[in-house]
Design a protein around this nucleic acid. Structure first.
Length: 294
DNA sequence: CTTTTTCCCTGGACGC
DNA sequence: TGCGTCCAGGGAAAAA
């Protein structure tokens, strides 16, 4: 499923082929893609727009037009974009098709139809994204201290807090599990309970996990593909995700699977020790756990 | 306010 | 082989 490394990979590949190109013709074949708007109306609005830039924020792909309108694309679970100058094969899961002014095509495919296209007028983007998205985990403002602030006074499991896009924009089920394994933190630990040294480890681990994914063009489990149809290769390097029963790379303990925040969650029971059973004094662990300047 | 649950979708895996 | 059931999960919305 496309998370930050996958969406950023798509962005990097689309940027050179889309920038400066005009949307010659647009077909939206699945009304759900643009709901509650009418597909034909959205397609008509997009026709004639010329791409000024291809950006990303969290898991959103942002096509900014020269008119300052924006097409906000979210791939959700199974969305993918394909670009070709040599025609495209038929695809029963195609939900939209854009013909560019250089004769090439961009096709949007989405088996499970969770993905969305939203056309925003100039100035509407920030108001849309601001309440939904937190820190970009690969950008400079994201520090261990900032992570501490974001997790402070949050009793939810750290895994749930990291999946919340208002904490870190772009983390998903795969990279959260991978980061928690790297940081040696149990997914059920209350977010507010992390000690400063754990926050430093987690900060480091989030970045390392995302950078590894980015370096391998993301992970292709089934549906995610690069715009030229190639697959990512990060799926071969998962430490825990989807590896229940296999030995931990660090200690050989079989990887365990539980359910956290409604998501399949894999971790090493030895490297990522169980949080203390919640007792009467669990809400305020100690003075020392309050971070000040990490 | 925070946190949890439900829902949307389809196809692949699995049991019988 | 064919059917029924479960599972995968991002994020909006509803419920707690």
């Amino acid at each position: 499923m496309p998370e930050l490394p996958e969406v950023e990979t798509v962005r990097r590949r689309l940027e050179p082929v889309l920038t400066g190109r005009r949307f010659e013709r647009v077909e939206i074949s699945d009304p759900r893609l643009v709901r509650p708007h009418e597909p034909d109306e959205v397609a008509a609005e997009l026709q004639g727009e010329r791409v000024a830039s291809v950006e990303r924020r969290g898991k959103y792909l942002i096509l900014r037009f020269e008119t300052d309108r924006v097409l906000l694309i979210h791939l959700r679970m199974t969305g993918s974009l394909r670009h070709s100058s040599a025609g495209l094969d038929d695809d029963p899961h195609r939900r939209a098709l854009v013909k560019l002014d250089d004769g090439s095509d961009v096709a949007y495919r989405d088996v499970r139809r969770f993905g969305t296209w939203l056309l925003l007028e100039p100035g509407e983007l920030d108001a849309y994204l601001a309440p939904r998205l937190g820190e970009e985990p690969l950008d400079a403002p994201f520090t261990a201290a900032r992570l501490g602030q974001l997790l402070a006074r949050r009793r939810a499991p750290v895994k749930a807090a990291l999946l919340d896009q208002r904490t870190l924009a772009g983390m998903g089920n795969i990279y959260v599990d991978e980061a928690l394994w790297r940081a040696k933190i149990h997914p059920l630990r209350p977010a507010e309970s992390l000690e400063p040294n754990e926050l430093r480890r987690l900060h480091r681990a989030v970045r390392t996990s995302l950078e590894h994914g980015l370096a391998r063009q993301g992970s292709t489990l089934r549906d995610y593909k690069l715009p030229d149809g190639a697959s990512g290769s990060m799926q071969h390097e998962f430490k825990v995700y989807g590896r229940g029963g296999e030995p931990c790379d660090r200690c050989a303990t079989p990887i365990a699977k539980i359910r956290v925040a409604g998501r399949g969650t894999w971790f090493c029971p030895t490297c990522q020790p169980e949080p203390q059973a919640a007792s009467s004094s669990s809400s305020v662990p100690s003075r020392s756990s309050r971070q000040s300047s990490v």
